[in-house]
Amino acid sequence: MTVEKEEVTVTVNGESHVVSVEPRELLSQTLRERMGCTEINIGCESAICGACTVQSDGKSVKSCTRFTVQADGADIRTVSDLADEGTLTDIQQAFTDEHALQCGYCTPGIVMAVDEYLDHNTDPSREEIRNEALQGNLCRCTGYENIVDAVETAAEKLD
């Protein structure tokens, strides 16, 4: 079966791209392989680990569970676009201050999810951080405690 390619226009970290993709190409693949966004990590195949999380039009999504054709016209942001000329955002800073990352494979996805979450809930409890903010992400290294601390710290700073 030969399938026609689809033309997709997508903005990634402020830069507009037009790509021609097979419909089956995943957004994570386009971002990693065509745009060099290797900060997006692929830890599972079942939409559970969240390591591939990016923001699409301001909303966090798992880029491994989106076809690129679905992102036509979307404005995509990855963790690389958060810092302003190398100055870490409050969330990023809190992650290093609280030792909230070890191997770092899950970190870019978690930061992008938390970045959106704190827009909606500016003063989350630890329980909400565990149950809601981090619900879409797995970490195998940290045991989450320091991530919860970092989200708390970041929420305080952002307030």
Binding site: L88, Q92, G104, Y105
Partner: peptide, 12 residues
């Protein structure tokens, strides 16, 4: 190690 990861610069 953290800064590189947080800026998206890790390379596996």
């Amino acid at each position: 190690e953290d800064r590189k990861v947080l800026l998206g610069g890790s390379k596996g």
